[in-house]
């Protein structure tokens, strides 16, 4: 479904991503973890074509997108949705208009059907009846859920989540996690979730990829990642000061 082959990205002399190889299968939830500034969000932006790699290839449904023009990319993006870190809701529109935006731009559905679809998607994210509210009047968690409703309005095959639980309280974080898994179950979407919340990652992931300083250091199932022998992975999972701390702990225990 999504495949990255030898992807590199640099700005001038600064290397952001180095030789990324990653394959994400259909209906899988792939969680990308890593410290801030490690290149997680950049990877997501490459997958959706907002950035172009310096070298390497990115395949979406078998189509290589890294050399596509913006118009060609738009045909691929019709099958994708993205939940942004800060929601990125259109603040000049109401919640209902935000969710209806994709349908109004890309379909010829009658207005009555669009309104029906908007209500259905808002109900799915637990915001039924909030159509006429403006984004400015919503809490952070509600904005994230509207952003999800907007992303799923056009029934995409791929959903990308950029830090969906960042800045939310634990109850709302759990709610968003449940929404990510239920959206996959109900709509059969392939999901790529960028997060640094380990609890969230273990809860929702089929597989987890860890990025560190622009390189993928490990890709495995949640259970395997928990047992990983990679000191960098363990340092991140347990929030240790340095990888050595984990190595020392392991040696002591042995």
């Amino acid at each position: 479904m999504i495949q990255l082959k030898n992807v590199n990205l640099s700005y001038g002399h600064t290397e952001i991503l180095h030789n990324i190889n990653l394959e994400i299968s259909e209906k899988e939830i792939m969680v990308i973890i890593g410290p801030s500034g490690s290149g997680k969000s950049t990877l997501l932006r490459l997958i959706v074509g907002l950035l172009k790699p310096t070298s390497g290839e990115i395949f979406i449904n078998g189509q290589e997108i890294s050399k596509m023009t913006e118009d060609e990319l738009n045909t691929v993006r019709l099958k994708m949705g993205m939940v942004f870190q800060y929601s990125a809701l259109f603040d000049s529109m109401t919640v209902g208009e935000n969710v209806a935006f994709g349908l109004r731009e890309h379909t010829n559905l009658p207005e009555a059907e669009i309104i029906k679809q908007v209500r259905r998607k808002l109900r799915m994210v637990g915001l039924f009846g909030k159509e006429n509210v403006v984004p400015g009047a919503l809490s952070g968690g509600m904005k994230k859920r509207v952003s999800l409703a907007r992303a799923i309005a056009v029934n995409p095959q791929i959903l990308l989540y950029d830090e969906p639980t960042a800045g939310l309280d634990p109850i709302m974080s759990n709610k968003i996690d449940r929404l990510i898994t239920s959206t996959r179950r109900n709509m059969g979407v392939t999901s790529v979730v960028v997060t640094h919340h380990m609890e969230s990652a273990f809860h929702i992931a089929d597989r987890i990829a860890m990025i560190y300083e622009g390189r993928i250091v490990e890709v495995d199932s949640a259970a395997e990642i928990k047992q990983s022998q990679n000191a960098i992975v363990q340092q991140f999972i347990h929030g240790l000061k340095s990888p050595r701390e984990w190595v020392k702990k392991e040696v002591d225990e042995a």
Binding site: D71, L78, F84, A88, D91, F101
Partner: peptide, 17 residues
């Protein structure tokens, strides 16, 4: 303001130029 709040990116992701 749309640019700095990622709304322009949101437009592009939603296949709107």
């Amino acid at each position: 303001s749309m640019k700095v709040t990622e709304q322009i990116d949101a437009l592009r992701v939603m296949a709107v130029n």
